[in-house]
Design a protein around this nucleic acid. Sequence first.
DNA 1: TGTTTAACATACCAACTGGTTGGTACCTAA
DNA 2: TTAGGTACCAACCAGTTGGTATGTTAAACA
Lengths: 216, 216
Amino acid sequence: MNATKLDVPRSRDPERTRERILDCAQALILDHGFGATTVDAVTGRAGITKGAFFHHFPSKSDLGRALAHRYAELDEEHLRENMARAAKLATDPLQQLLVFVGLYEEQFAALDQPFPGCLFASFIYENKLFDEDTLVVLRRNALVWRAALRAQLEAVAAVHPPGRPVDFDSLADLFYALTEGTFVMTKTLGDRSLLVRQCQLMRTLLEQLFTPALAG
Amino acid sequence: MNATKLDVPRSRDPERTRERILDCAQALILDHGFGATTVDAVTGRAGITKGAFFHHFPSKSDLGRALAHRYAELDEEHLRENMARAAKLATDPLQQLLVFVGLYEEQFAALDQPFPGCLFASFIYENKLFDEDTLVVLRRNALVWRAALRAQLEAVAAVHPPGRPVDFDSLADLFYALTEGTFVMTKTLGDRSLLVRQCQLMRTLLEQLFTPALAG
DNA sequence: TGTTTAACATACCAACTGGTTGGTACCTAA
DNA sequence: TTAGGTACCAACCAGTTGGTATGTTAAACA
């Protein structure tokens, strides 16, 4: 498979080794899937031996679980942070929402490598390879996004009644789904601009929904 | 164990055998991924032997390629059909587009099993497992959708200028991306209603974009 | 009817898989 | 100084993998 070694000075730092294993595994998984990512490939890339791997992770499924937890924590921290920043940058709920999407747009635009995709989408298309503990993390993550955006959308609607009635749960899910789908398209077409453009479009659609007529 | 042959004479129907292999493989792949779907599992499910499998497919990658081609053909035929039906059911381009989405909504609603997901999304998250010939099929499929919807969107805009300027390519991609993403969410949350609800939402957003003010 | 050939089945293999073993180098605490 | 745990390594193991070599059988011809 991919045997490119990240030659890192052999530093006896278990925490960093563990993180490096997770990093390498995640990169490989996003290209090959979990099932086809062998622990030999992971150890080869991380520059360690199989013994070291199984010292840090009792089994390959433990690696999967650890990966899911780490990904969810990072993602949800990221979500909270952008929500908080948007809340500070604007006072009107709609403007906050638009800024929120704008922040993600900014961050997508700043990526230089082609976007590698979402670990959770990768996992869910191999769901039978994972135990319930791991899958629960994915479910919870989707619900966290729904709850966060639904709350914001209700605040928006209280100030700007939508031009047409909409189901807020579905509109909240739109963010998650559209992002996931755009990841798929980005990987498919190799066009890095897709994420940014879908963010722009989402802002347009939200503005059009909540402020149909331009106010001045 | 089975000494006497009571079995019905083997249905010596190569075309059906081939299709059964493809069906079984696809079902397994959508749950385990391509890499973790062994040909033993496929043959076991299809009720044939490994010899039979390799008679129909020279290698496992040939199975993948055949699967991609079949999936694309079915999907694009489906797309053309729904486009044609929508074109007959309405004359106004916007109404055609809304009917088009409505047809998919209908078809999603009619599914009784939980939706198994999109083969292409599964493949793209294991892209390094496939050769260029296979990946080209996925790319072409995404572009077919974009082209079809972009054309329709331009026809819509000619009659109903959008309330805000939008990039038609991105709006066209929204259909593909939102569908893919909702497949992911459906698999994640196990909620079969998600697809239907995102179709409804999409129709609302399109109406709001192209006819901001309700005409009478 | 006999012959050929496509459509399978059976038995097997080399390479690879996740995981284990026994060991070594290093750090820390007593 | 030393005892013991942590971090890591090299070699190995049993089971599984995609793939093959060689049969067998039914159907399509001649």
